[in-house]
Amino acid sequence: MADHRPAVGVVIRRSALVGVLARRGVQAAGVAVLVSVLCFLVVRSLPGDAAYRIAAGRYGYDLVDQETADSVRAELGLDRPVWQQLGDWLLHLLRLDLGRSLVTSRPVAEEVGYYLLGTLQLAAVALTFAVVLGGAAGVLAARRPGGIVDRLATAWVAGVRAVPPFLLGLLLVVVFSAQLGLLPAVGHGDASSLVLPALTLGTGLSGLVARVTRDAVVEVRQSEYVRFAHTKGLPERLVLLRHVLRNAAVVLVPYLGVQAVILIEGVVVVESLFAWPGLGHSLVHAVFWRDVPVLQATALVLALLVVTINTVVDLAVLWLDPRPRRLEASA
């Protein structure tokens, strides 16, 4: 009997894995087409003359008049029928060619890739900070619900959620950069310039992570299998690592997935405060300049990132969740 169990388990896991990947693959393709078309239509319906905005993005609006706008319109073929322009973009997308920016004339893939890297770096480090700070606070708070640590953690949650990231960022800059001189205020050079923006985002997020971790840990600790683990004489540390944290992570990981998506899409303010080149920055410029290819590509990348993150979350939960083994037992 013992010899068969891993094999059955592997089969179940593999079929679940294939299911997740297939479902997410179809989702990604659908999202790509939908987002592209929507972006295109939304930019089309924005007020103002697109050729004029593009010209102003290129040359600065001081140097732009109707004549320049007309020459941009002719150069980019903006007066062609809408369906033709959209069809062109979709055809190129099929060939994985994202085209060139209307404003900077640089390849879109190159430009968006650069900002994507910046965003991913920032989001990854910010999430790490959030998990370390929030996770530690949550686990400590859960040791004695209602105790001093728990109350302090609750105050922390409320505090960091109440401070807007912009203010928090400025405070961090004033303390760590202007006063202590430990870290550069802004920039995108060495690794040290990443710390303050990531800390700003991570601190804001750590409050909620702490809350979710605390609740999950409290709940798991009261469960029968944890009590059983204690009863069978496992040391506290092992119970925590093997049973409590792992089961709490099943709750925490999907939550972090959602937060990662929010981090990637919603960090425009922090990016601009720290002059950090990320997708939010690129998105704002693209909207302002009516740079349709960059906008479409950025939105596409963001949409695919959401799908990717959800896939990773699904897989991580599949890996973490002990319940499929219980399925095996009943099989």
Binding site: T128, V132, G135, L182, L183, D190, A191, S192
Partner: peptide, 16 residues
């Protein structure tokens, strides 16, 4: 997390 923190933190002291 500890590893990531260490990697980003070690370059921190060279700001000013």
């Amino acid at each position: 997390p500890a590893i990531v923190l260490a990697v980003t933190g070690c370059a921190g002291a060279s700001a000013r």
